[in-house]
C-alpha cells in the first residue's frame, strides 16, 4: 500500500472526526476497520491529525488488545478462554485449533487465511466451550469438532 493510498482512505475516516484528542481510540478503531490492521503510516497521519506525539499513538495502539499492528488473516478465529469455557475444557480446543492451523494464539497463518486469537469472554457461557469464526459462534466445542468447524467456515468463505 502506498502512502497516497493510506492518505486517501484516511481522509474519509478523518471526515467523521474533529481532531480532538479524545477521538484517538474511535479513530484507531475505524482505521483498523478499513485496513484490517494499523499501518505505521496511518498511525503517523492520525498523530498529525490529532496534534499529538506519534509515540503516544503507538503507546495507545499497543495498550489495547483490539489493535493489531500486522495484517490479520481473512478469517478471525477466536477461542473463548473465559472461566466457564476453561472449566469445560477450552484449553484442549485451543490446543487442537493451534495444531490444525499450525499457528499459536495471536498469530496469523502463513497464507493469511486465518488469524487465531483468544478472547476473555464472548458472553455465551452457557454454550461453553465456545469459539467464533468471524461473526459465527460455535458452542459446546470439542477437539473433534474443530476440524469440522474449520471445514464449515472455509466452505462458507
Amino acid at each position: 500500500m502506498t502512502k497516497a493510498d493510506v492518505q486517501d482512505k484516511l481522509k474519509e475516516v478523518f471526515s467523521h472526526f474533529h481532531g480532538e484528542q479524545q477521538e484517538l481510540i474511535p479513530l484507531l478503531q475505524e482505521t483498523q476497520a478499513r485496513f484490517r490492521y494499523l499501518p505505521a503510516a496511518a498511525m503517523r497521519e492520525i498523530a498529525r491529525f490529532l496534534h499529538m506525539p506519534e509515540a503516544t499513538v503507538y503507546g495507545v495502539s499497543t495498550f489495547y488488545a483490539q489493535f493489531k499492528l500486522t495484517p490479520l488473516g481473512k478469517r478471525i478465529v477466536r477461542v473463548c478462554r473465559g472461566t466457564a469455557c476453561h472449566v469445560r475444557g477450552s484449553s484442549k480446543v485451543l490446543a487442537e485449533m493451534e495444531k490444525q492451523l499450525g499457528v499459536k494464539a495471536g498469530e496469523t497463518t502463513e497464507d493469511r487465511e486465518y488469524t487465531l486469537e483468544t478472547v476473555a469472554c464472548i458472553g455465551a457461557c452457557a454454550l461453553a466451550p465456545t469459539m467464533t469464526i468471524d461473526s459465527e459462534t460455535y458452542g459446546k466445542m470439542t477437539t473433534k469438532k474443530v476440524a469440522e468447524v474449520l471445514g464449515d467456515s472455509s466452505k462458507a468463505g
Binding site: C80, R81, G82, T83, A84, C85, H86, A120, C121, G123, A124, C125
Partner: peptide, 10 residues
C-alpha cells in the same frame, strides 16, 4: 464488563 464468565451487564 470484562470478566470472563460474566455477562449480566451485556
Amino acid at each position: 464488563e470484562g470478566d470472563p464468565g460474566a455477562f449480566m451487564d451485556r
